[in-house]
Every structure is written in C-alpha cells, then in structure tokens.
C-alpha cells in the first residue's frame, strides 16, 4: 500500500489542525488516523506524518514510542488485550491470560503465524467493575469466562 492519505483524509487532517493553535498538537490525532489506515506505524508512515505536520521524524518517532497504543510493529487482525491489574487479578485475570496464551500458542506481545491474533497483557483499562475483562481491538468484554472466550474466538477464527 502506498503511504498516502486520500483526499478526504487530508481534509480531515486540516480539520484536526484547526482545533489547535499550534501545528504540533495535531500529531497525536493524525498518528491515530495513520494507524487506523496503515495498520501500524512503520518508519515510512512516521516520515509521512512528519512531512504532513512539518515536524522532524525524530519528534514523531519520540512521541510514537512513548505511547503504548501506537503500534511499532505489525499487529494481528484481532488485537487481544487482557488486563491483569489488581482488580482483574482478584477476578482471575491471570488465568484468563494463561488460557488465551495456551489457546493461541503465543506469549505476551506475540502474533500468531496466520496473522489473526496478537496477544498483549495490558495495564488497567478502566473496567474494574467488570473484572476480569479483555478487549478485542476497540471493544470491551467484561466479566469474561473461559467458555465465553472459547466461543468468541471460534467466531473470530471463522470470520
């Protein structure tokens, strides 16, 4: 895929720029856009964003690597995020993590060879009342059980 935004996306970038008095502030939202379109932030993508916002590549790289949610490597189609922080730990979040890890045959921060799943052990996602919880891409699943996870993953594999 060519690393360029479409006409309408460039309009969106202009709209984002207009929200802030300084150009640099548009960096985080534009990185989000870029990640959504290109899947992850490769060097080429970061250079492209730097060019759009008149920033140095070094600055863009610095910001992209500071925040954990910007992907610095290709991710699987389904990004599985399992919380194991205090509340989820009290709700057996670690068991859920181990189960998924064994089920997919991958460890933390790895992707299955077929590119379907990436697994990540994450810090608190702000859903402590629904512990244990996992997130698949942008969606939260609270009060999960092993059975629920098995069903959901079977569905994801088929789709």
């Amino acid at each position: 895929m060519d690393i360029v935004f479409s006409e309408s996306e460039l309009e969106k970038v202009e709209e984002i720029k207009s929200r802030y008095p300084e150009l640099q502030a548009a960096l985080m939202p534009v990185l989000w856009m870029a990640q959504k379109k290109f899947g992850w932030l490769s060097k080429e993508v970061m250079m492209y964003v730097a060019g759009l916002l008149d920033l140095s590549y070094a600055h863009v790289y610095g910001v992209a690597t500071f925040y954990t949610m910007y992907f610095k490597k290709p991710m699987g189609k389904n990004h599985i995020q399992v919380c194991t922080n205090v509340s989820c730990m009290l709700g057996e979040g670690e068991m859920i993590f181990r189960h998924i890890s064994e089920k997919l045959g991958i460890n933390n921060n790895e992707t299955t060879p077929d590119g379907l799943f990436s697994l990540e052990e994450v810090e608190c996602m702000g859903a402590c009342g629904g512990a244990p919880m996992i997130a698949i891409n942008e969606d939260y699943y609270e009060n999960v059980s092993i059975m629920m996870i098995d069903d959901k993953f079977d569905l994801l594999k088929q789709s």
Partner: peptide, 26 residues
Amino acid sequence: YIHKGAGAYICGEETSLMNSVEGRRG
C-alpha cells in the same frame, strides 16, 4: 474539542497531560 490519549498512565498528571495535548511525549 476532544483529544484522545494513547495509553500512558502518566498523562493523567496535569502537566504531562498538557504536553500530551501539545503533541509531545507525556
């Protein structure tokens, strides 16, 4: 305006949050 973070607990600290809005490391 809404500004979306990108996974950094430290950005809940007010000055770090301002750096994050400005498009810097938090």
